[in-house]
């Protein structure tokens, strides 16, 4: 494993920064939307989910990358699934032990990290053909890109839907109609369909700023 590149060469840093914008896993590669949206009604579960996915994807990438020369091609999908499933079980047990209430809120979606397409996508496309360190950076970058979108969506949904962030009240009580003000929460934001529409709008903003990404 003689690596001529320094650990943080420009090429390696690009692996880390590209997924945040121009090859974002959610808005550009269209991966991992499955479990992403259902947990974004509030900011806290969105952050926990983002961290969990980042941990699983970075470690999974490293493990598969270390094993890449010994995995027989025909059964690689099963091997990848087993590695991911083992990591997800670890994450699930840690969440249950330390943040039980969030783990209850996330319910089946922790388990669904296993079938999160980002994981399979990155393992298949990157870790199977790259060295461990690069794979680790790629995993971190993609996890962060995924988390970024999750946190943006969670931020707007909790702020507009409940008037709070991370459970702390942002919109003052006195603004509300019930207290003689003029403001009311938008109850629609908490419902599932608004998560999709919010992502649609994020894509719109991103693509109008970065015209290269426009599809025909």
């Amino acid at each position: 494993m003689s690596d001529k590149d320094p650990l943080f060469s420009a090429k390696n840093l690009k692996l880390l920064s590209d997924p945040l914008n121009s090859s974002n896993p959610i808005t550009v590669q269209v991966l991992g939307i499955c479990s992403a949206l259902a947990v974004t009604a509030q900011l806290k579960p969105a952050i926990v989910m983002a961290i969990s996915v980042t941990v699983v994807i970075a470690l999974g990438n490293v493990i598969i990358s270390l094993l890449r020369n010994t995995i027989p091609n025909r059964i690689r999908i099963i091997v990848q699934l087993v590695v991911i499933a083992a990591l997800v079980i670890l994450v699930d047990q840690v969440l249950k032990a330390f943040v039980y209430d969030v783990s209850k809120q996330l319910s089946v979606f922790v388990g669904l990290i296993i079938t999160n397409c980002i994981l399979m996508g990155r393992l298949e496309a990157f870790a199977m053909s790259n060295k461990p360190w690069q794979s680790f950076l790629d995993g971190l970058g993609n996890g962060a890109g995924y988390g970024l979108i999750l946190i943006i969506v969670g931020f707007f949904r909790e702020l507009l839907g409940s008037g709070s962030l991370l459970g702390f009240r942002i919109i003052p009580e006195s603004w509300y109609i019930t207290n003689g003000g003029v403001y009311a929460n938008n109850g629609m934001m908490i419902l599932p369909p608004m998560a999709l529409i919010t992502i649609g709008l994020i894509i719109w903003v991103q693509r109008s700023r970065n015209r290269k990404l426009i599809e025909n």
Binding site: P193, L196, I197, I199, G200, I203, W204, N216
Partner: peptide, 23 residues
């Protein structure tokens, strides 16, 4: 459809509208 919204973006928004209908 507005250009930046073509493809993926409009699909998300239409799915959201279908979801509202299903509600």
């Amino acid at each position: 459809v507005p250009k930046p919204l073509r493809g993926l973006g409009i699909t998300f928004i239409v799915t959201g509208l279908m979801g509202i209908a299903f509600m």
